[in-house]
């Protein structure tokens, strides 16, 4: 029960931070808040027993993303303009998706139960097979690199794709051939 309680508290904090992000117009503030957000969600992941994920989220979400966002802000502007459009459509979209999700989640199995399909069908297989088949005690690693190794290859490719894409966009060119893109100096 204490697990569930910690979980609840952390999630409530998360919701508060989210409201802060929505309302803050200073972009530096937003970046700081989103860093805190990432750390909080990493803690939630710890509570949910996802230690690998928590570690990644902490380093990527709180670390890498924040560095990138700050870098971007350094290169652009620090403040958000007031929006021209009335937020009716966005509210409608957000509420629509929310409602769809409410509709969808009402029948979901309750939190933390061991007898739901997720914990019955494929998941336990990994727990049971990892040691005898691969000899790796960290089941996340064995699933990541072996059972679903192809996903991870795809994930590596995603990183590679994004990296090349960013370099294509941002790398300083040796020669000035920017005549091709108007508006640039």
């Amino acid at each position: 029960m204490s697990e569930a309680l910690i979980n609840t508290v952390l999630l409530s904090l998360l919701a508060c931070i989210t409201i802060g992000i929505v309302r803050t117009r200073n972009l530096f503030g937003v970046v700081v808040l989103s860093g805190i957000y990432s750390l909080l969600i990493a803690s939630v992941m710890m509570v949910l027993d996802a230690v690998d994920v928590a570690m990644t989220e902490a380093s990527v979400g709180a670390g890498m993303s924040t560095v990138l966002l700050l870098g971007t802000l350094y290169l652009t502007k620090g403040h958000e303009m007031k929006a021209f459009k009335p937020p009716l459509l966005p509210l409608f979209v957000a509420i629509g998706v929310g409602a769809m999700l409410v509709y969808g989640t009402i029948d979901l199995p309750p939190f933390g139960a061991a007898d739901q399909p997720v914990n019955q069908h494929v998941g336990p297989d990994y727990l049971a097979r990892s040691k005898p088949e691969t000899g790796i005690p960290n089941v996340v690693t064995s699933v990541l690199a072996s059972y679903r190794g192809f996903d991870t290859l795809g994930e590596t490719t995603v990183v590679f794709t994004a990296g090349i894409g960013i370099l294509m966009l941002l790398r300083r060119r040796r020669k000035k051939d920017d005549t091709l893109r108007e508006g640039e100096k």
Binding site: V51, M55, S59, I136, P137, S142, A145
Partner: peptide
């Protein structure tokens, strides 16, 4: 990474 959290990505 085989025994504790972590791996190539981290």
């Amino acid at each position: 990474g085989d025994f504790s959290p972590g791996g190539g990505f981290q």
